[in-house]
Each structure stands twice: as C-alpha cells, then as structure tokens.
Design a protein around this nucleic acid. Structure first.
Lengths: 183, 183
DNA sequence: CCTGAATGAGACAATCACGTCTCATTCGGC
DNA sequence: GCCGAATGAGACGTGATTGTCTCATTCAGG
C-alpha cells in the first residue's frame, strides 16, 4: 500500500531527464501512481525536485563510501567508483543536466562535498603519477559525470548492454579510445 | 532590425539546456528580444524546438564536413571533429540531453545520418587498429556527445578554459586519464 | 528627409497545469 | 472478517503561460 518513495523518485528522474517539461500528471503515471498520491508525498514540483536532489546526494554519498576512494591506487579506486555509480546513474544523470537547482540559491552543501571528494581522487591520481596532469582534475570530474549520464541513457535506450556499463565508462575514462601498446 | 535567427536559437539553446522549463518570455529575454517578436519568428514552443533541432543538424553537418572524417587516420580525424564541434557545442548539448524530440515521432532522418557518420569514424579506427575494439563504436559515439556536452557546460560555468575545450575532450576521448608510457 | 517594415510593450481571452478537495475503493494489519 | 489507512479517480478554483492582437516607436533604405 505504502508508496515506495525511492521508486517514485527514480521513475521521476528517468522521465524528467528526457522530458523536463513533463507535467505532474505524467510523472505520476510514469511512477505508476495517481496524481493525488504524488501530491500527498511531495508538496509540489519544487519539493519533488528537491527530494530528487537529496536522494541523489544520499545515494552518491553511499557510492563514494562503498568505493573506498582512498584505498589502492587511484585507477583502481576510480573503477570501484564507476561500478558503484551504476545504481545511481539515473538520478545522477538528471541532476547533472538539470542543475537549475544549484544556480539560484546557495550551492547545495552536500554536492560541494561530493564534488570535492571526486576531485580529490583525480588529484591524488595525478600526484601519484597515475593520471596525466595536462587534463585538470576539475575537467576529469565533469567528464565522469558526463560519461555516467551518457552511459545511463545509452543503457536505457538499448545502445549499450547493461553489463557493459561499468567497463565502458571506466575503460574509456582511464585508457581512452586509442589502442594502447602496453597493457 | 531584422532579428538574427541563429543568435536567438543559440541563446534559447543555452537557456533551455540549463532551465528546460523556461517560459517563452524568459527565452525571449535571454535572446534580447520581445516575446511578441519571438512569436513572430517561431509559431510556438514546439516550432522553436524544431528549429533548434534543424539548426543543430545543419551545424553539425557542416562540422562533420569540415572535419573531413575520411582523411588521415581516425585519431587525427577525431581531433578535427572535436575542434569543429566546439562552435556547435551549445546547441548540441541541448539536443543531446533533451532528445524528447527523437523518441516520439520518427527518428529524424538527419540525425540518423549524422550518427552514422560518426559511428563510421569510430568503426574505421577500430578496423585500422587505432582504436580498441572492446569499446563499441556506438558507445564511443554516445561518449563523444556526452563529453562535448559536459565540456560545453564546464566552459560555460568557468570550470574549464575555453581554449582547453578541444584539447580536454579530444585527449580524454583518445588517451583517457591514465598517464601513458608511450607517446 | 520619408516611407514602410520590424520591433517592444502591453492588453486580452483561452488554455493548461497546479494544488486542494471529496468520495468510493482497495489494501494491510489485527 | 473488520477496521483504518492509503490510494485512484475526478471535480474544482486559481494562477501562470500561451498565442494573438493593437499601437506607438525605432530602424533601414531610398
């Protein structure tokens, strides 16, 4: 009986990522619930978006914790991060593209913290000599978001197999498209 | 006096990419024109989006032509492609994220053609031994879109210098983040 | 300088989405 | 089987957006 809040938000993210102008009614239908029920759980569209943001922060935080970014070398940590990110990809893709939230008011504290942690991972990789230094850590962080989003949509649209999600992103991000002699 | 159609569309793309729910009035203000004038040039929101799509196809077609994808080896062609893509990045980023257009009706013929050309480039690189084959050409195509979009926003938000746009994307896409021994 | 086209601002009705409400129904717990 | 809570469907008023219109102003070209 009780509506699965997380499920509703996931469905909303998937829909809004592709059709941002969807009405509350469309969002409700996509989540398989009635419009009235949607309003019972989220006061309005703004509240829904904010809940989406909080869910993303919460999930990504868990993913970062699970990835243990400080252990092993940076490439290995990045692989773990990408693997953990898979479950968050849908919500993350939405939040990455629709960051209207962040521009208006104060940048969400939680996001800044998460951003810093990923940024630190790339920086560590550069300092330890595993990552190239001609690509800024800030750009690598953005690129990670972009690739996760692209990967999520590619899987959703059937252009990439779900099982290839982690491999496709991590390998491209680490080694690029060029065929390498080593390894 | 005459409104610069291309300028209006570019401004609209930049706004809609970040705030997809913007009203026609906001779009008009962002383009520096009145709402009435916007309606004179584009019958409605749908017509505006469609014009945006056509502009993107037209510009990307030109970019692909200028990049001469069939010449030299695939990596060199890809570098040229990324460089040419820079000017299209804004519109492209919008169309990539808001592809609600493509799902409903018949996939736009023009987009399928462009997609095929980029896809063919990656495939050629794989066949000639320059690109790794464990990453599908379809995924590399999607990744290119994602990185161009991420790059456009990173530049727009000041996280990446405009002059680094091409280098950041092309190098990451080709060589990845890992520091390489060769080259 | 003159003329006509194009623009910006605003008014206007119509449409749409929103948020709230009611009511019958369904589901879960006891 | 009963009861209460939650849900779905729909109605309703409200506010915002849309698309069209008018009118004064501005601009470009002759």
């Amino acid at each position: 009986m009780a509506v699965d809040r997380s499920h509703v938000l996931t469905a909303a993210a998937a829909l809004l990522a592709r059709r941002p102008t969807s009405s509350m009614d469309e969002i409700a239908r996509a989540a398989g619930i009635g419009r009235a029920t949607l309003h019972r759980h989220f006061a309005g569209r703004d509240a829904l978006i904010r809940a989406l943001e909080e869910l993303g922060i919460e999930q990504l935080t868990r993913a970062l914790d699970a990835a243990r970014l400080d252990e092993d070398d940076a490439p290995a940590a990045l692989r773990r991060l990408v693997a953990e990110t898979e479950q968050v990809a849908g919500v993350l893709a939405f939040l990455f593209t629709e960051n209207q939230l962040f521009e208006g008011a104060e940048i969400n504290e939680g996001w800044a913290r998460l951003d810093a942690r990923i940024h630190a991972l790339f920086r560590r990789g550069q300092e330890e000599g595993d990552f190239r230094i001609d690509l800024g850590a800030a750009w690598l962080t953005e690129a990670l978001y972009g690739l996760v989003g692209a990967g999520a949509w590619a899987v959703h649209d059937g252009r990439v197999a779900r099982n290839d999600f982690t491999h496709s992103i991590a390998e491209l991000l680490l080694g690029g498209a060029r065929r390498s002699m080593e390894k």
